[in-house]
Computed example of a mutant assay.
Amino acid sequence: MLKEVSATRYISPLREGGSLPGLVEADDLGMYVMKFSGAGQGRKTLIAEVVCGELARRLGLRVPGLVTIGLDPVIGLGEPDQEVQELLKSSGGLNFGMDFLSRAIGFDALAHRVSPEEAGKIVWFDALVNNVDRSWRNPNMLVRQGDLWLIDHGATMIWHHNWPGAQASAARPYDASDHALAPFGPDVDSAAAELAPLVTEELLAEVTAEIPEPWLADEPGFDSADELRRAYVRPLLARAATIHERIELSEISEIHQTREIQGTREIREEGAE
């Protein structure tokens, strides 16, 4: 199971995302980016973070260490920001945390180079989990000491918001034309050949076992947490075998995307002068 820590100090909000994650210190003296159970997106965002983060790690991709964070709402009593205070008050109990990567910077396609092999693995993985939040506008990747790290997987596995249509939703193609790594010529076929055989029922069962039981409770249509865990396994297992054949990524879109990124960079630079 994921390591469990307890929050001892709320440091500051991180306002880049809509869920208003926060930087906290825990009783193991670690610093974590915390996502709250009381945020508007609800517990399914936290489940997606666990499943995708742990699956990515087992496939050899870099993801900061994941933990669960126990939160006593009393920690928010001295918080001056009313929005943050309400979020802390509504998130008592178990929350999601990710190691804070000090000295990491946001990925910039014009400042960092990525090999076709690494780009292919990340695009394939994002197609597997249907990640709709890895565009060049919001890459959700960090760079530290030249290494690329994947973060923020809350907007994945959209099918778990409508279980009756999960299998049909999981069969849909993946549009990677706007992906942050599209300009790097992702070698998706090689990635699929290497990674797809690793996505077995046993591996997925291992990954879903990491989901804390309280986040699985009272899901309509399911009699137990284990039954719901198996429901997460089925779409991913089916998708892994053939999703590389349905990734929409063209050279034309890569060229246009690179030009658009360059144009946005130039506008920013002009505005800073």
Rank of each mutant, 00 (worst) to 15 (best):
K89C: 07
K89V: 00
S90G: 09
S90N: 13
S90T: 05
S90Y: 03
S91E: 03
G92W: 03
G93N: 02
G93Y: 03
G93T: 02
G93W: 03
L94P: 04
F96E: 01
G97F: 02
M98D: 00
M98S: 14
D99Y: 04
D99I: 05
D99S: 12
D99G: 12
D99L: 12
D99N: 08
F100H: 11
F100I: 09
F100E: 01
L101P: 11
L101G: 04
S102H: 15
S102G: 12
R103H: 14
A104I: 04
A104W: 12
A104T: 07
I105V: 15
G106N: 13
G106I: 00
G106P: 02
F107Q: 07
F107Y: 15
F107N: 06
F107R: 06
D108K: 10
D108L: 13
D108H: 12
D108F: 13
D108Q: 14
D108M: 09
A109F: 04
L110F: 07
A111P: 03
A111M: 13
A111D: 13
R113C: 14
R113N: 14
V114N: 08
V114F: 07
S115T: 15
S115M: 06
S115E: 05
S115D: 10
S115Y: 09
P116D: 07
P116E: 08
E118G: 00
A119D: 02
A119W: 02
G120H: 02
G120C: 04
K121W: 04
I122P: 00
V123K: 06
V123H: 03
V123F: 02
W124A: 05
W124S: 10
W124D: 09
W124G: 06
W124C: 05
F125A: 05
A127N: 09
L128H: 12
L128A: 09
L128Y: 09
V129I: 15
V129W: 04
V129T: 14
V129F: 08
N130T: 11
N130E: 14
N130Y: 08
N131W: 01
N131L: 05
V132I: 08
V132L: 07
V132D: 12
D133I: 01
D133W: 01
D133F: 06
R134N: 06
R134Q: 08
R134E: 09
W136C: 01
W136E: 08
W136R: 11
R137Q: 14
R137L: 13
P139D: 05
P139H: 06
P139G: 10
P139K: 13
N140C: 10
M141D: 00
M141Y: 09
L142N: 07
V143M: 15
R144Y: 06
Q145W: 11
G146E: 08
D147E: 15
D147N: 15
L148C: 12
L148D: 12
W149H: 14
L150E: 07
D152I: 01
D152S: 03
D152E: 01
H153E: 00
H153R: 00
H153A: 00
H153W: 03
G154F: 00
A155Q: 11
T156S: 10
T156A: 06
T156G: 02
M157N: 13
M157P: 09
I158V: 07
I158E: 15
W159Q: 10
W159N: 14
W159G: 12
W159L: 12
H160P: 01
H161F: 09
